[in-house]
Design a protein around this nucleic acid. Structure first.
Lengths: 327, 327
DNA sequence: TTGAAAGCGCTAACAC
DNA sequence: GTGTTAGCGCTTTCAA
């Protein structure tokens, strides 16, 4: 592997000049430039990023945590982040946490070891204090998780409001016994949803019946299982708020299997407005979020932080909207 | 940020000894070790990975190319690769190609710049020669794409056989006018499927009618669009082989909308056996692959290559199986 | 416009 | 068991 020293020797200039040519610096004579370019061509030289990283104290790499790459909401979210970052010269390293605190710890360590210029957290089981303590003074942004923070920038969706208005919609439509599906892990996000659910009942003077817990993945399979549980006996619910469209699709499929008529006897609302909503029968109603806008703002803030700009902690919240379809 | 030199000074030993302690080398006295550990604690020292990378000539990072992170097949595939690699001490950097050759070129450049120890390609629009030429002598493995290769290791699914047997199944069931949905880009994978489709017709002395092209994403939306096109006029098909379950789900949904009865008038078979198959009505039949096994073998081969072991180019092919459900 | 020299943080061969 | 030393490949001041 040729280094800039080899190029320097072959072209009869110094390492510095070679470096200048590579980095398109001005004030290099046309003559030197040509000689260097020729040498580069001849030895098929490619710059070694490892040297650059050490010298410049940056790897142009951003880490992103994601619970699981096999996830219909987080996966596209990270994809969006990755393309936006790429457009401004940064690569993305994806770290799956598998909903485990230990995995999270390891990721934060990578950050402090300077492999990453910054970290974006899309899902966490920790509090701000715990995160802050582990990531030290590195650049860290929170995306999608409505964490209460004082030192970290947060971009999140208004989960409380989204659930609040969807719940009100169901209640006003005459549904009375609503079920809300939550994860086992009580994250701030889950809590907000639950608050919205309760408040909507309160404001309409309705009795808020039951919450149902399912495990943390919100998959189709879990929807099918949960559905078997709910619909096999006497089903007391006439409305369900599912934590994700995939969970909702599983529930819907199970309801049909058990002879529960949707939307006549039961209404189901999903979350995220994934296109799977269009393939179920009837088509799934769902809550749609401004994910794209959120990511755009996030990346713009990230760049400012990386530039070392000083400004108060950012907290942005984006409103969701209920998309009414057949369920 | 404290460096090992700071630790060395504070604890009264040399840089080497500090390094030995950090890396758990034997032959360090208990006394030195304690002193170093104390200093590390006191200055809250963390090793700087950039220095390690330059020195060790490795970043412990593997790149993976994926067409789009928002993809129900590739996303879980990469997730699987990531966890397996993580278990053996490697991180994964995900690069989205968005089905663009230019993006691919850029990724290969990253590899030659030594930011990556190796690259796994899950989807490509290039031939082996073009890839080989760009990646030079770096470690590169192909996963999922049945490329004809002489120098690169390939792990792929037997697309030809999977389509062949599914087509035969449909024909033997009495379907006569089959449609196969292919991508616009004619990749080796697409070609193999097409061959299987033709051969199945040939072997049963049936006439192979038409192929239909759709663009390269295989999404629900495209299924809906394609469905509108096919089913709005006179539909001549009584069987469809879709390139993915999501495309199939879209087609199914559209068929229902246009009053085409499935499976009575029309049969639909998807690809990948995604759980979405369980949420459509009727449940989607689909072709299931041995993805897990493929990834396991791939990573094991990858490790051998990274160890510098010399052996002939590996080519492994995994059989698929038709899962028959309601369509 | 160019080159010399310093140094980013770390590891490892070698000598003791 | 430990320290000295060289060097991985690059960028960037500084002086010429």
């Amino acid at each position: 592997m040729a280094t800039i020293l080899d190029i320097a020797r072959l072209s009869g200039v110094s390492k510095s000049t070679v470096s200048r040519v590579i980095n398109n610096h001005p004030h290099v004579s046309e003559d030197s430039r040509t000689k260097v370019m020729e040498a580069i061509e001849k030895l098929s030289f490619v710059r070694n990023a490892r040297g650059v990283h050490l010298r410049t104290q940056s790897t142009k790499t951003i880490g992103v945590t994601i619970p699981d790459l096999d996830h219909p909401y987080f996966s596209p979210l990270v994809g969006m982040i990755a393309s936006k970052c790429r457009n401004v010269g940064y690569k993305i390293v994806v770290f799956q946490t598998f909903y485990s605190i230990e995995e999270e710890y390891e990721i934060y360590e990578k950050l402090t070891e300077n492999e990453l210029d910054a970290l974006i957290i899309t899902h966490t089981l920790l509090s701000e204090q715990e995160i802050k303590q582990r990531v030290r003074n590195n650049v860290v942004l929170i995306c999608n998780e409505p964490l209460q923070t004082r030192h970290l920038d947060v971009f999140s969706l208004d989960e409380r409001d989204a659930v609040y208005s969807s719940t009100q919609y169901l209640l006003k439509e005459g549904r009375n016994h609503l079920l809300m599906c939550m994860d086992e892990e009580i994250t701030p996000l889950q809590q907000q949803r639950w608050e919205g659910f309760k408040q909507a009942h309160l404001d309409l003077n309705k009795i808020c019946t039951i919450q149902q817990k399912v495990s943390g993945y919100a998959t189709i399979e879990e929807g099918l299982l949960l559905g078997d549980e709910i619909f096999s006996g006497q089903c007391n619910y006439d409305g369900i708020l599912a934590g994700s469209d995939f969970l909702a699709a599983g529930l819907l499929s199970s309801a049909k299997k058990h002879g529960v008529s949707v939307p006549k006897e039961l209404s189901i609302i999903g979350f995220d407005n994934h296109s799977i909503c269009l393939t179920t029968f009837p088509a799934l109603s769902s809550i749609k979020n401004q994910t794209e806008l959120m990511v755009k703002d996030l990346v713009s803030c990230l760049l400012d932080r990386l530039d070392g700009k000083e400004f108060a902690t950012v907290r942005k919240v984006y409103k969701g909207a209920l998309v009414i379809r057949g369920t």
